[in-house]
Design a binder for these strands. Structure first.
Length: 258
DNA sequence: AATATATCCAACCGCCTCACT
DNA sequence: CAGTGAGGCGGTTGGATATAT
């Protein structure tokens, strides 16, 4: 385990010298939460609602930093949090959403009721990434680790994207036309002339419409209807998208999805 | 039974974004 | 418009637990 691949604590701390104030305060408790602390926090949030996390610890009588309180509530105490193992259909959903969204754990978690970003991230790192590697698939790109193993690797469609079938033979692969998330996202971004924010290619899309689109990804029946080979990426890239517009001309599949 | 190794997952940390002043 | 603070996110750590030797 203990395999810091990209950034060591030292390099991370060097990147910025100023610590986040609320977390650097002396006298604040760290580490695992006790049942008493949980109760204090849960009771307080139920009574006063979420938010104002920085001042919450003091008001709730906790010797924790606000961030810690928020995290504890979001990942553990919130009533909607579902405990227990990730079901196969949830796993399939995670894989699909990750292929589309990358490591946007919060976004992925938002589509999976009762699951937190932390839980999904942990599950991905401990289970799914290894699973993909064993299948010869790069967990970051969802493409084959060995390009030679895929005869079509130079094309837009990559064989590694038959992921769902590789992992879950029962899974309907009807969303195959969305298989290359990189291409999709790239095209989304390139179709957005005024987008100065490389970070979110879908930013031009308001939350509701993007949510609907994701819902269509989740709903396999809808995807069966949507199936139009080789239509998504070209149709999106060829459209001009106006950031401020509420309706988008994104090509036939997006129109249906949205 | 003792020790080593692997796995899981809660929690921490630093950075980023955005609203507010 | 710049500065500031709060909230939120993703990467990473480290202790607890399970499994293998």
């Amino acid at each position: 385990m203990r395999n810091p691949s990209s950034a060591s604590p030292a390099t991370m701390s060097n990147s910025k010298s100023t610590a986040t104030p609320c977390c650097s305060k002396v006298g604040l408790k760290k580490g695992p939460w006790t049942p008493e602390e949980d109760e204090l926090l849960a009771n307080y949030v139920k009574r006063e609602g979420e938010g104002r996390w920085r001042t919450l610890p003091k008001r709730a009588g906790l010797l924790r930093c606000g961030k810690s309180c928020r995290l504890r509530w979001m990942n553990y105490l919130r009533p909607s949090v579902k405990r227990g193992r990730i079901a196969p259909d949830e796993e399939d959903l995670i894989l699909r959403l990750h292929r589309l969204l990358g490591n946007r754990w919060a976004l992925i978690a938002g589509r999976i009721p009762g699951r937190t970003d932390n839980e999904i991230k942990n599950y991905w790192n401990s289970h799914l990434s290894k699973k993909l590697i064993n299948q010869g698939i790069d967990p970051r790109t969802h493409k084959p680790l060995d390009p030679n193993s895929c005869p079509n690797s130079s094309e837009t469609q990559v064989c590694g994207n038959n992921l769902d079938q590789d992992l879950n033979p029962d899974v309907d692969n009807s969303h195959e036309n969305l298989k290359n998330s990189d291409v999709l996202m790239t095209n989304l971004e390139s179709g957005h002339e005024n987008s100065s924010n490389e970070e979110d290619g879908m930013e031009f899309c308001n939350g509701e419409t993007f949510s609907s689109f994701l819902n269509s990804l989740i709903n396999e029946d809808e995807f069966t209807d949507l199936q139009q080979p080789n239509v998504i990426a070209p149709s999106i890239s060829s459209q001009h998208v106006t950031p401020s517009s509420q309706t988008f001309d994104l090509g036939p599949v997006w129109e249906v999805a949205l």
